[in-house]
């Protein structure tokens, strides 16, 4: 305190101090000091540190040297006036060259600014989009959810239909002759009812992809690491056991063919498709998809109706 001898100031100090301190009890003070120390002692994270570094640098770069600086005073003695430039040329610089640091060490020229530009554009687009779609956002979400749900129901309905059809078929075939059980997969794809053909097709595609990947996985290391002996006379079982059997599935060829029927079916809106499958189930199998019950006859007594809403 420079004015220590001044009586007035002395008085104010006396009155000020206890007032301030009086509001804080010893416990409060302890709590405050502890809280302060905690803040001080906390180890800052890397990003915090980086931000702090950058911030201190930027402020430093923005702050011109103060006229109270010794160098400033020495220059003033040499006849320098604030705002002037050095030397004798007309357009000498007034401000030091700014230091700019590359954000990303290895980024090429233009990457940083390109990133900034893209970010800015994205922000602008986003702002526009949000403005337009703010109103129907809720509707859209609801619709999307509904479609997802219907998709799920359709898949289930298709599965049921396929299963019921197979069951029915095996039952009739068993009566006719005792042949080996024919699964849906071995039928040519086109012969499958279009209502659930899409389901079968997707499953087959998945299986084929898996097989291709597996055979690739198998063939590569085996042919490279273990040159194996190939015996022409090997029997089929042996080949199968060694994984060298290349069993051809006839339907696979169908997968690559165009299927206009299926395309036409899949082009319909999902509600219609679901309705068709549900109706198929009712007519052919007396099964209500919504009741999840197979009625004994065509009247389907007890079922409230065809649609989901009826149930």
């Amino acid at each position: 305190m420079a004015q220590s001898d001044d009586e007035d100031d002395y008085m104010t100090m006396v009155f000020d101090e206890p007032k301030k301190k009086g509001t804080e009890t010893s416990l409060q003070r302890r709590a405050r000091i502890r809280a302060e120390n905690e803040i001080k002692a906390r180890v800052k994270s890397k990003t915090e540190l980086e931000a702090e570094e950058a911030a201190s640098r930027e402020t430093g770069l923005d702050t011109a040297i103060d006229p109270s600086n010794k160098g400033f005073k020495l220059m003033a003695k040499l006849g320098y006036k604030p705002g002037e430039t050095l030397g004798k040329s007309e357009n000498a610089r007034k401000e030091p060259i700014r230091v700019t640091i590359k954000e990303n060490k290895n980024a090429g020229i233009g990457v940083d600014s390109e990133k900034k530009r893209k970010f800015r554009e994205e922000m602008e687009n986003e702002a526009k989009r949000v403005k337009v779609e703010e109103g129907d956002y809720r509707d859209r979400v609801r619709q999307e959810n509904e479609e997802k749900r219907l998709e799920y129901e359709l898949r289930n309905a298709q599965k049921t239909a396929q299963w019921l059809a197979d069951e029915h078929k095996t039952a009739t075939e068993k009566d006719a002759s005792d042949t080996s059980p024919a699964s849906a997969e071995q039928k040519p794809l086109k012969s499958i009812n279009v209502l659930w053909r899409g389901l079968v097709r997707r499953r087959l595609e998945g299986e084929r992809n898996w097989r291709i990947r597996k055979s690739l996985d198998d063939s590569l290391p085996r042919s490279q690491r273990l040159p194996i002996y190939v015996d022409e006379d090997e029997d089929a079982d042996y080949k199968l056991a060694l994984g060298r059997d290349t069993g051809v599935t006839p339907i696979e060829d169908d997968l690559d063919e165009d299927d206009p029927d299926l395309e036409a079916f899949e082009a319909q809106p999902i509600v219609d498709r679901l309705l068709k499958v549900v109706e198929y189930l009712r007519q052919n199998h007396h099964y209500c998809f919504w009741c999840k019950y197979k009625y004994p006859d065509a009247t389907m007594e007890g079922c409230p109706g065809v649609t989901e809403e009826d149930h």
Binding site: G71, F72, M75, G79, Y80, L86, G87, K88, S89, A92
Partner: peptide, 23 residues
Amino acid sequence: LVHFDLMDPPAPETLMRALEELY
């Protein structure tokens, strides 16, 4: 030093710092 005729004189603050450091 203030009017030393350099082709591209630096910013005045550069000279300020130099003088300050030397002082």
